[in-house]
C-alpha cells in the first residue's frame, strides 16, 4: 500500500503532467542581437507584429552598399528557428532571409539585389515564409 504522502505526490504529479500536456503554451523569448542603440530589424513571433520580439541593433544606420553585410545572423537560435511571422526594418536596413542555418537553402528575395526592404510592415505568410526563417543577413 502506498503511503498517503507518496500517493499525494503521485496525484499532483499526474495533474501537473496533464496540465502541461494540455496547454503547451511557450512564449518565445525576446532576443536582441548586436550592440548599439539603433534598431535595425525587428522580427515577431506572430502575425501582425504580435508576441515575442527578435531585434537586431547596431551602432549606426545601415549603408546603401548591399554587397557587404551590416549584420550576419547565421542562426536565429533554437527558440526562434522557424518561428518568425512578421517583421519591420529601420535606419536604412534591409534583410535577406534563408530557410536553413548558415544562409543555406532557399532565400528571399530571389531577385537582385536580394534584399527586402520590409519597411513598416512585412508579413511572412504573404511572402510564403511563415515559420521558415533560420538565418538572415542585414544590409
Amino acid at each position: 500500500m502506498r503511503s498517503p504522502i507518496i500517493f499525494g505526490i503521485a496525484i499532483v504529479s499526474a495533474l501537473t503532467s496533464i496540465f502541461v500536456t494540455s496547454t503547451s503554451a511557450n512564449a518565445v523569448a525576446n532576443r536582441t542581437v548586436g550592440s548599439g542603440s539603433l534598431t535595425r530589424v525587428q522580427f515577431f513571433e506572430h502575425a501582425g507584429f504580435a508576441g515575442g520580439l527578435f531585434k537586431v541593433v547596431g551602432t549606426g544606420a545601415c549603408t546603401p552598399e548591399v554587397t557587404d553585410h551590416d549584420d550576419s545572423i547565421s542562426y536565429v537560435s533554437d527558440a526562434w528557428n522557424d518561428q518568425i511571422s512578421s517583421g519591420k526594418d529601420f535606419n536604412g536596413c534591409d534583410v535577406q532571409i534563408y530557410v536553413n542555418v548558415n544562409y543555406g537553402g532557399s532565400f528571399y528575395p530571389t531577385s537582385s539585389p536580394h534584399y527586402k526592404d520590409m519597411g513598416a510592415s512585412w508579413d511572412a505568410t504573404a511572402a510564403g515564409w511563415n515559420d521558415r526563417i533560420s538565418s538572415f543577413y542585414v544590409s
Binding site: G48, G60, K88, G92, D94, D117, A120
Partner: peptide, 25 residues
Amino acid sequence: GYHAPAAADPSSSSNDKGASSAWTP
C-alpha cells in the same frame, strides 16, 4: 482585422536606402 495600424509607424517613410535623409558614406 488582425492587421496592425502602420500609418503611425515612424519607419514607413524613412527606411529607403535612397531617401535623401539616408547616410551615404
